Amino acid sequence: MKNKINQIEGIVVSKKANYLFVDIDTNHLSTNILEDLDIEVSSRLLCTQRSRLAYSESFVSVGDRVLVEAISFSKATGVVCKIFPRSSFFERPPVANITNIFVLISLDQPRFDYDQASRFLLTAENTRQKVSLILTKKDLITQNLLNQYLDRLNQWGYNPYPISVKTGDGVQKLKNTLTNSKIGVFCGPSGAGKSSLLNYLLPYASIPVGDLSKKLSRGKHTTRNVELFQLTNNSLIADTPGFNRPEIDIDPKELAFLFPEIRQQIHTNRCKFRDCLHLGEPGCALDKKFERYSNYKQFLKLMINRRRQYQAG
């Protein structure tokens, strides 16, 4: 063989047990190399990772840009030897280099839960990436009720995408936004319709979709692993395992910035003190007459108590 490929860059699209599935860009391989290989080159390699990465606590996650060596195109295998620096990281579930978070909440079956939606939105906002709210199963409620939800969520600072994969209503508008994201993440409670939406967008993916639990009236877990799916050449989307009450662990001083309705006020009217927690301190500029202020105080108390327990222990 005249040309030997020692290393090539790729992106981790799936992780199962101790194996990584890495997509590489075969367009970067020269014509001469492809001819010398004399085989059909797969763009996806099954990889392990060098033990030194684990020893250095450099754990590979889905979404990571990596360097692959010891490549066998005949077996479609390789070994990840390097992880490139991350631009962002979503901890639960772990996804690297995300640019957009899409929070999916169903309007019915299971019924929309404002507290649950707020928790997911706060977790998403904590990534400091662009957050969008998707309201699924709009075909199950009346337009009047949908308008009430939209008006309330607009006051939270969000402009939701109401959709129905059953009728296709609203999906094209959402798709335009999805394809403008480099690596987007679907998150939300089980049964919200994350896998159903991906199947609508990518019929070839055949992602398992679960039924609602009749006993609990909420979704069953069907997505077991994080996986990236390609929407366009420049856009990937991750389906993630559903979880019903995401844990929130945020610095109390940063919590206010995770509420768009508070964030907007802070940018317009500065408080007297930079460390103001907006609990009635002198010179606090926050107008507290908005729906989620009690929600903010509840989470703030939780975060403060958690920090105290951590410092004491």
Rank of each mutant, 00 (worst) to 15 (best):
M1L: 08
M1R: 02
V12M: 00
L20F: 15
N32T: 13
D36W: 07
L37H: 09
I39D: 03
E40M: 12
S42L: 12
L45H: 04
L46I: 05
Q49P: 02
R52D: 10
R52P: 00
L53D: 04
A54F: 01
A54G: 01
S56G: 01
S58D: 13
F59D: 08
S61F: 08
D64S: 02
R65C: 02
V66W: 03
I71W: 03
S74H: 10
A76K: 15
V79A: 12
I83K: 06
I83L: 11
I83F: 04
F90A: 08
P93C: 07
A96T: 02
I98G: 09
N100V: 04
I101Q: 07
F102R: 06
V103R: 06
L104M: 13
S106V: 04
D108M: 09
Q109L: 04
Q109E: 14
R111F: 15
R111T: 13
R111Q: 13
S118V: 02
L122T: 15
A124K: 10
V131D: 00
S132R: 15
L133Y: 07
I134A: 05
L135G: 07
L140Y: 03
I141E: 06
T142C: 11
N144K: 14
Q148T: 07
Q148K: 07
L150A: 03
D151P: 00
N154V: 01
Q155S: 11
P160R: 06
P160C: 10
Y161S: 10
I163N: 05
I163D: 02
S164K: 05
S164D: 09
K175H: 10
K175A: 09
I183D: 14
G188S: 02
P189Q: 12
S190A: 13
S196F: 04
L197S: 15
L202N: 00
P203D: 10
S206R: 15
P208V: 06
G210C: 01
G210P: 00
D211W: 00
S213K: 03
K214I: 10
K215P: 02
L216C: 00
S217C: 03
G219Q: 10
K220V: 13
H221K: 14
R224S: 08
N225A: 03
V226I: 06
E227T: 08
L228Y: 00
L228I: 00
Q230N: 09
Q230W: 03
N233I: 05
N233A: 14
D239Q: 08
P246N: 12
E247P: 03
I248K: 06
K253T: 07
E254L: 15
L255I: 13
P260M: 13
P260D: 09
P260C: 13
N269R: 11
R270I: 09
H278C: 13
H278Y: 10
L279H: 07
L286Y: 02
L286S: 01
D287A: 07
K288E: 05
S294E: 13
N295F: 02
N295L: 07
Y296C: 09
F299V: 15
F299W: 09
L302C: 00
N305K: 12
R306T: 08
R308L: 11
A312Q: 15
